[in-house]
Amino acid sequence: MITFVNRFEVHGSVDEFERAFDATSAFFAARPGFLGHRMLRAADLPGRYVNVAEWESREHFERALAHPEFLPHAKALRALATSDPNLYTTVLERTAPK
């Protein structure tokens, strides 16, 4: 499994950004290897978001990015925000005891 983390700084309308990201989310959800994601909005910093997505593999993620239908989503998000994307692998994971 690979984790994709992308931090966004919105310089356009946050409502428009959230709508555009919702469409991007639906696109990725339909791609093979997509496991799920969470979009988080900073509680005290308007316009700052973090997307955390999990994929079966780096190859699945890269194929989704290379899909021709992704380009319009990327352009729409870039028009509204800057981003800092990175791939991560799990080093340590712990959950609360039950």
Rank of each mutant, 00 (worst) to 15 (best):
M1H: 05
I2M: 09
I2N: 09
I2V: 15
F4Y: 14
V5L: 11
V5Y: 08
V5S: 11
N6V: 03
N6F: 00
R7V: 07
F8D: 00
E9M: 02
V10C: 08
H11K: 11
H11L: 06
H11V: 07
H11I: 03
G12K: 03
G12T: 03
G12L: 04
G12Q: 11
S13K: 00
D15H: 07
E16S: 13
F17V: 00
R19M: 06
R19T: 13
R19D: 09
R19A: 15
A20W: 13
A20I: 09
F21W: 13
D22A: 15
D22P: 11
D22M: 14
A23P: 07
F27N: 01
F28Q: 04
A30N: 12
R31E: 01
R31Y: 07
R31M: 01
R31D: 00
G33L: 01
G33Y: 09
G33F: 12
G33V: 03
F34K: 00
R38V: 03
M39D: 04
L40Y: 14
L40W: 10
L40N: 13
R41T: 01
A42N: 02
A42C: 11
L45H: 02
P46I: 07
G47C: 10
R48F: 08
R48Y: 01
V50T: 12
V50D: 04
A53H: 03
W55R: 07
W55L: 08
W55E: 05
E56M: 02
E56D: 13
S57R: 06
R58S: 10
R58H: 15
H60E: 01
F61E: 00
E62A: 15
R63T: 05
A64S: 04
A64L: 10
L65I: 08
A66P: 03
A66L: 04
H67D: 12
H67R: 12
H67K: 09
H73D: 00
H73C: 06
A74G: 13
K75D: 05
A76K: 14
L77D: 10
R78S: 14
L80M: 07
A81N: 09
A81G: 08
T82D: 02
T82M: 08
S83N: 08
D84L: 12
D84S: 14
P85E: 07
P85H: 09
N86E: 14
L87G: 12
L87I: 06
T89L: 10
T89P: 07
T89E: 10
T89V: 13
T90H: 06
T90Q: 12
L92Q: 08
R94E: 02
R94G: 11
R94D: 01
T95P: 03
K98H: 12
K98R: 14
